[in-house]
Computed example of a mutant assay.
Amino acid sequence: MKPHKIKRIALSAAAICLAAATAVSAETKLILGEAGPNRGARAAALQHFVDEVTARTDGEVVIDVQWGGALFKANAAVGSIADGVADLGTIISVYFPQEMVGYGIADLPVVNADAWVGMRATDDLMRSSDTIQANLANQNLVYLGTFTTSAVNIGCKDVAIRTVDDINGLKIRGVGAYGDTFRDFGANMVPMSIYDAYQGLDTGLLDCSQGYSYAVGALKQEEVMTSYTLLNWGQVGALGVFMNKDVYDGLDPAIQAAMADAGVAMADKLGELITADNAAAVEKMLMAGVEVIELSTAERDKLVVQGAQYVDAWVERASGVGIDGSALLAEYETLLAKYAEERDTQGYPWTR
């Protein structure tokens, strides 16, 4: 081979290597820790967030999701993200009642049964509250987007809850302020995970289990239930994606904005998926012969009134970390009304 051809080939190879190095350096790869498995509506919504970030940054940001607690378990998420074990990840507020007290507002037993309305109100609050953002910043965290488990309901075997008086004496699996309210109405609370509730109902260890429609369907609990009461009460919505603030602050503002937009889109996607899954699960229950009961507004309001003490307790807890809980609660209720009106006048985003 002639010397000038060898030189030209060498220069071309160098140019290719330089171009590749430039492309690699332009790409930002982030690691996301998720304690749950890569299946179900929430996982699909999280993947939607990941894909949206890449699309909205024209491929500049790529997120590698480590599923199933590969990097950290759910009860270690706050410290792991803040310390940089992952660049970002999912935090479930109930594991961190003090650190995530502001976010915990989405778990309160207020009238808030619509998954999309609840998520968008929570998302709006988390982005607009300077106090919450400052509290998170002190923990080296930044909020990016929210999920929900959707409306809290209750399924039973060989009994039915048609009024709050029917709760008295029942063996119930319940969690959070919702479970505490069931206890106030005379329930005998049984500590058990939702994943063990099938066996609990089947063997008689439980009369009823607090849960969510799509979870009943996913866990096939309709096979051991005879009744399912739609409470039209509230939901557990304080779980979402947060980012290490040091890493976030190092990103270009345009990328930060793209991640925020992807976070809003994530709530819309989960709203679409979980609304469909809940409807399908209720239909599955009906086909299995389960009696589906809708609690009356008057009976539901008794739950709300009784649960108000747990809302008050949250306000006091928030005040303990410098957050005006009363003001935040009023803002949250205003946002719930705002997005409920948007739903009623414009429909859900995926139906427009």
Results as ranks from 00 to 15, higher is better:
E316V: 13
V311N: 11
E333K: 05
A318T: 00
L336S: 07
Q306H: 12
Q309R: 14
V315S: 01
I323A: 02
A330K: 11
R317I: 08
L335H: 11
T334L: 15
D324N: 00
V315R: 06
A318C: 03
G325W: 01
V311Y: 11
Q306C: 11
Q306S: 10
A327H: 03
G307C: 14
L329H: 04
E331T: 01
A313C: 09
W314Q: 08
S326P: 00
R317W: 07
Q309D: 15
D324L: 02
D324Q: 02
E316M: 04
A330W: 09
S319M: 09
I323M: 11
V315N: 04
G325S: 03
G307P: 05
Q309P: 09
A313P: 07
E331N: 02
S319C: 09
Q309Y: 10
S319I: 10
L329M: 13
V305C: 12
E333W: 00
A313Q: 02
Y332W: 05
L335E: 15
Q309F: 11
G307M: 14
Y332C: 05
S326V: 09
Y332I: 06
Y310L: 03
V315W: 07
A308W: 12
W314F: 03
A318Q: 02
V311K: 13
Q309S: 14
A330L: 14
R317V: 12
G307W: 13
G307R: 07
Y332Q: 07
G307F: 12
T334V: 14
L328Y: 01
G307K: 08
G325F: 09
E333R: 02
L335R: 12
V321D: 01
W314Y: 04
V311I: 08
E331G: 00
G307S: 13
G325R: 02
L336C: 04
S319L: 06
R317A: 15
A318S: 04
V311R: 08
V305R: 12
G322H: 01
V321E: 01
G322W: 02
V315E: 09
E316G: 09
D312L: 01
T334M: 15
E316T: 15
Y332H: 07
A327G: 07
G322S: 05
D324V: 03
W314I: 10
E333V: 10
